[in-house]
Structure formats: structure tokens, C-alpha cells
Design a protein around this nucleic acid. Structure first.
Lengths: 333, 333
DNA sequence: CTGAAAGCGCTTACAG
DNA sequence: CTGAAAGCGCTTACAG
């Protein structure tokens, strides 16, 4: 006894079994179509399921098997093409392998807290892909030690990680700008949150290093939040003094308003004003922005593949680091 | 017998009970801190949990209670500020009420299929908010009849819906343009998928209707996919012939490249070229685009609130429709 | 190939 | 206030 019908008289595997005149085990077997079931029996069960409108209860399945076929994907944001591309490429691999992704964008403080409080969500999935934020710091105490985890754009002592050599990307951007006979500016993002990614800084460092090697230096670095509004302002400030200069933005996203302002002020972008972004976001292709291309899709694909191997217990034990190289793409700016 | 330790010797409620020398029921009670537990007992249980590193198994809880405290949020996309704002406002209400959101953006065909195939995901949550796509068509046969569902930007016969009066939005845009002594063009999105939203069409219809009433008409309608690339092309085509015209875009997103091209071609935006968007996305505020403001945050908030009421069984039974009105925001374009 | 049964880890009336 | 027990709806060795 002791049971209230919460689930609105849902039909269970038991009802199906009775209806088809078989045991529940058999129903379960056709459900998972593993082990051999007699074709005629299977047919009977199948039509019983249809007849009764049976839908399996995922919670029960998960409790019983201990797996959910779900993967949590944590990103610091989901705005912008970068994450679109990344998530789509992760998803593609996941779906192909029978998993679904559970997206968890940490777009504000509240989401951080919510994640820590109801870490249930994580624990109910089979694996975890974390982009940009530090697992060790953010979730070190929450994630079970043997949960399969892959880090993206973030190093980890304990887990596999996929990184892009952002420092190297900065270097090639610097090499490209060093020969230009103009002032050199940088517009970059200052990380606002302890747990945010350090990629922008790495790009900046590489850029700086490359210029130094060639006996040049950055004339000024502008730090902005990751929005266009502030970047417009910065651009106006720059162009009101300099009608001729080279600007490196540590992401294409920040290059867009700069180019917009330059054009509005009728400066010749690509000639007097040179702009090099980073990432090769779709917008960079559309606006023909010169940029450092990051292999975003590859990152997602590799991350998902490694994670699935880990979930299936096929991965090697030692912590692995995959480092992908960016490349310079010269366009019109 | 019959059991492999899949879950890496995880500690269960049983272990905690034994350790604290109480029954499992008591542990469960302190876990959910309902019904009264003796303070000293509670303390003993609490420290036992800490000692053993106990983490509750959500699957078991869900199977037992039949609830998950999860809400699925389905959107046709998640790119762009519109969905950012919408999702954030939904999340805020959800989190405040102890729920978590499970994001499911249908950004391509593959995701549609995946959703239909593993509809498990939906069924394992307590409720469903669906934006833009037709639940009846998309999921009519999957969603249980008594699953709490709220539709956004999409009417439904069976479920509550929150709509914006897009037709009315078109009307006020038309009223605004009708007095302008220039050619009038429209750039809009042609829905590519059977299940896509019809908002763009409704806006267009309102716009058309308003112009007709005032004895005017649209000179040409340009249909584009929802990306900038094609819109750039269209803009170039328009401005190569017309140096003076008014353009209504059925979303701000499409207004951006048009303004960009106009400025690049040195046309006077706001004077010779008038542009009115729709939505009032952040980008519209940044670029000072005249637009029809949609109350995005309100939509999300109202949807989440209604859903929670339904989940808690406090909602009225009849299907409810909430219609929010957009308004004209005049800026520089 | 298949049924009966134990088990997954919780929750919750019931009877103290 | 609390323990013993039934139940949630599945899966899966086990023994035919």
C-alpha cells in the first residue's frame, strides 16, 4: 500500500506484460532489443505497447542501469557564434552515439550558484564537458572523482583537456602586424570573474611577445567588457586621434564595432586602418575580417569523442592534453 | 544477487542510516527536511552524511516521487540576443522556485529528430516551455496529455500560450512609415521549416494592412534566410538603385547589415534611408535602431510563472491566452 | 527464448 | 519523533 497515483495512471511495463501475456523481463528485452526474443513474441509485445500507449519511464531505467545517456555541457555563455558552433559540433558527435546534451550556460552569477546548489543535475548525467571555466575550482568538490570529464579551453590537473594554442595565435597575429608602419593597439577583454577563461590574456601575451622580438611594442591596450557598446566607445576614442593605425582584437566579436566605426568615419579599412581579429567566427567571414582562425568545430568534436570513450571505459587512464593550432586568415581588413 | 557495482561503490542512504544508527526513513527525512526530526538525531545524520561523503541519487528520488524539479525549455534557436534575454528571464523565475531548466534549442534538423527519438528527455521533466514551434504539430503525439505545457509565440488549442501581438506591431510600424515620402521596402524571413514560427509573416501582414489603410503599399518584399550574409546582398541590391527609401525589417537582426551597407555607401541613415526593425534587441539599442519593442523579458517571466502554477496544480483548467502588446521606439534610424 | 525474482536508491503512509 | 516495509518502474543474471 502507501502510494498515491501521481503519474496519472500511466501504463507501465507491467501492464504491457500482462496485455501481451509475457513476463516483464521479456518486455524489457524488446524495449532494449538486446538478447534474442522470438519474432512473434516481440511482435505481440510491440503491438501491446502501441495499443496501451506505453512510454518507458526514464527515471526507472536510469536508476536500474545507473546511466542516463545524457552529457552535461557547461559553457560560460551561449551568446554568439562561437558557442553555437562549438555546441553544434559537440551535439553532432553526441547524437550520433546515442547521447543527448544537457546545456548549462553560466551566463550570470545566479547560474553559478544554481549549479552549485543543485549539482544533482550534473550527477544525473554520464559525463561532463566544461568549456572555459575551471572545473577544479568551480566544481572540484562536487563532481565525483570518477565522473568522465573533458575540459575545453581550460587546463586541468585531473581531467583531459582540449586546448587551442592561444599564445601561438597571438604570435602569428604579432608577426603579421610587426611589419606595419603604424601605431598598434589592442582591444581585449578583461576577465571579470575569477573563474573565467584566460584565453584573451594568452592571446595578448603571444602578440606582445612577437612584437618585442621584432623590436616593436603595443602603443596602447584597451580593456572592454564583452559587449559592443563599450567597444564602440573605444573605437571612437581611437579614431578621433588616429586616422591610421593597426588594431588587434582578441576576438572577432570585438572587431565588428571597430570596423563599423572606422567605416562610418570614412576611414579606409584594410589600408589606413588594419584590423585583425581572433576566432574566425561566422561574422568574420561575412564582414571579411582578417583573423586568427580557431578550429572550433574540431574542438567540440574531439572533446565529445574523448568523453564518449571515457564513458564507455575505453579511454586511457592518464590525463591527456590535446593542443590544436590556430592559423592566420588574411581577408580584407 | 545479480548486481554489478556500476556506480563505483557510491554511498547510499542505507550506509548513512547504518553509520548514524537510524532508519533510512529518518535519513530521508532530514534530507528533505520535512516532518519533524529530533535536532540531535538530525545532527547525527548530517555529520554521517558529511563523514561518508554522501550524495543523493537523483534518479532514485525522481522514480520515487515522480517529479524531477526540471523544466524543459525548447526554442528554435539560441543564437542571438532575443533568446538570451528570453531564456535568462525564464531561468530567473525557475531558479527562484527551485527548478532548473533544461535547454533544448532546435537549431537544425538533426535536433528535431533527436528530440522525437529520445523524447525521454521531455518526459523526465516536470513541465515544458516551448517557444516558436508548434507543440501540437511537433510533439502532439509525444507529450503526455497531462504534462504542464506553456507555449510562447505560438498559439495552441490545448495549452496555455503567451503571445505578442505581432500583427499590431506591424500596424504601428506601417503607421510610422506611411507618411514618409519614399519607396517602402520590407526585408523579412521566409520560414524554411514547416514547424517554424509565423511571427515574421504576422508582422508583415500588419505592416501591409496599415499601409493599405493609408492608401500606400509596399514596393518590394525581400525574403532572406536569418543570416547577415544574404541580407548584405539584398541591401546592396536595394541601395544600388535607391539612394532614398524606407526599409522595414521584421527583426532588428536583419536591420544591422542594412544599416551597415547604407553607411558604407555613404547614405544618410535616419534621413534619406529610414530603417525600422522589430524586437528591440540589445543590438538595436546599441546601434540606435528605430524599432518595435517586444517585451521579451515579460514573455519569459509570465511563461515561467504560469508553468510553475500548472506544475503545482494551482492553475485554472481552461486554456489561457496572454497577449502582450509591442510598442514603437523611435531612435536614430 | 523466457519467466520469476532480486535489486537499483530513494520516499512515505503506517504503526508505534 | 522514528523504524520497518512497501512501493516507484525498470534491468538483468539465473534457471529453466
Amino acid at each position: 500500500m502507501a502510494r498515491i497515483a501521481r503519474n496519472f495512471q500511466k501504463v507501465t511495463i507491467k501492464d504491457v506484460a500482462k496485455y501481451a501475456d509475457v513476463g516483464v523481463g521479456t518486455v524489457s528485452r524488446v524495449l532494449n532489443n538486446n538478447s534474442h526474443v522470438d519474432p512473434s513474441t516481440r511482435q505481440r509485445v510491440l503491438s501491446a505497447m502501441k495499443e496501451l500507449g506505453y512510454v518507458p519511464n526514464p527515471h526507472a531505467r536510469r536508476l536500474s542501469t545507473g546511466t542516463s545517456d545524457l552529457v552535461t555541457v557547461i559553457t560560460p555563455e551561449m551568446k554568439g557564434d562561437f558557442y553555437q558552433t562549438l555546441i553544434a559540433s559537440i551535439d553532432e558527435v553526441l547524437i550520433k552515439n546515442g547521447y543527448s546534451s544537457l546545456l548549462y550556460p553560466l551566463y550570470n552569477e545566479r547560474k553559478y550558484e544554481a549549479l552549485r546548489k543543485s549539482s544533482e543535475i550534473l550527477l544525473s548525467t554520464d559525463g561532463l564537458i566544461v568549456d572555459g571555466v575551471s572545473v577544479d575550482k568551480l566544481l572540484g568538490d562536487i563532481v565525483e572523482p570518477n565522473m568522465p570529464v573533458v575540459c575545453l579551453e581550460q587546463e586541468s590537473e585531473r581531467y583531459d583537456s582540449i586546448m587551442v594554442d592561444n599564445y601561438y595565435g597571438g604570435i602569428i597575429a604579432g608577426d603579421y602586424f610587426a611589419d606595419l608602419d603604424m601605431e598598434i593597439f589592442v582591444v581585449t577583454h578583461r576577465k571579470a570573474h575569477e573563474l573565467e577563461s584566460t584565453v584573451f590574456d594568452e592571446r595578448l601575451e603571444g602578440f606582445q611577445e612577437s612584437l618585442e622580438r621584432k623590436g616593436r611594442s603595443i602603443d596602447k591596450i584597451y580593456y572592454v567588457p564583452l559587449d559592443w557598446e563599450s567597444t564602440f566607445e573605444v573605437a571612437r576614442r581611437i579614431f578621433s586621434r588616429y586616422k591610421r593605425c593597426a588594431i588587434f582584437t582578441t576576438t572577432d566579436y570585438l572587431a565588428v564595432p571597430i570596423i563599423e566605426v572606422a567605416r562610418t568615419m570614412e576611414l579606409k579599412v584594410g589600408k589606413d586602418v588594419r584590423v585583425c581579429g581572433f576566432d574566425d567566427l561566422p561574422i568574420a567571414q561575412i564582414l571579411e575580417i582578417t583573423t586568427i582562425r580557431q578550429p572550433i568545430s574540431d574542438m567540440g568534436k574531439v572533446a565529445a569523442e574523448i568523453l564518449i570513450k571515457k564513458i564507455r571505459g575505453k579511454a586511457r587512464d592518464k590525463v591527456r592534453k590535446v593542443i590544436l593550432k590556430p592559423e592566420l586568415v588574411i581577408r580584407e581588413t
